[in-house]
Amino acid sequence: MYEFKFHRPTTVRQAAGLLARQEEAKLLAGGHTLIPTMKLRLAGPKHIIDMSQIEGLSGIEVKGRSLVIGAFTRHDEVATSSIVKENIPALAELASLIGDPAVRHRGTIGGSVANNDPNADYPAACLGLGATIVTNKRRIPSDDFFKGLFETALEPDEIIVRFQFPKVNKAAYVKFPNPASRFALVGVFVSKRGSDIRVAVTGAGSNGVFRVTAFEEALKKRFGVKSLEGLTVPVDGMSSDIHGSAEYRAHLVGVLARRAVAAATA
């Protein structure tokens, strides 16, 4: 690992100041992406800005028609929260499928979404529920947030503070985990809020998480498994690696989308 200095600010403003001022600075949340990457020398920040001492960044509450989750909220807290289970059970289910129990005790939602790993689970929930990502500077609709592999709309000194997930009528997440890493080989999140239908896919796209508008249009006519019968996504644009070919992933998208709709309407 390369050498670094660390800082433990107590407010978001201080953290943002450090990010802007210090050269090659990086935020540290749960550390379950950043520390492994540093161990492999794939990242070598000179300054680490630990978020754990900042008040008010974790917690779960209902505000009006949204479920609000602080950026530093750990996966296990989302997975076991009675508020999440009551309001958006699919989100609690998704969090319970991330990695393993020890990873869920440390990793945070903010870290996962900021990292935007193409095989991560939370990006599918953000896009699949139409979440709003609230930073220290602005409110970013999830449709404008995910920009490609490990790329987001975040500016270098921008910090995610919380997430607003609109309450939906129906939602489900179905994941086909990579048997070794537990990350999603493919994962599909579907939701229905009035006439707003969303189908978001993680793990499959060569450019990261994406929405399947053809599936959404079909589900607008009737939100049921039958509406997706015979529908597929183009193989072009799917990623391909030792874990699965583009054809295989395209096939899984169709299968998992039908299973997700079945689960959401069960």
Partner: peptide, 11 residues
């Protein structure tokens, strides 16, 4: 339960 290989001592 947590992985002590993925946590700095100062954390």
């Amino acid at each position: 339960a947590a992985k002590s290989c993925t946590t700095f001592a100062w954390q």
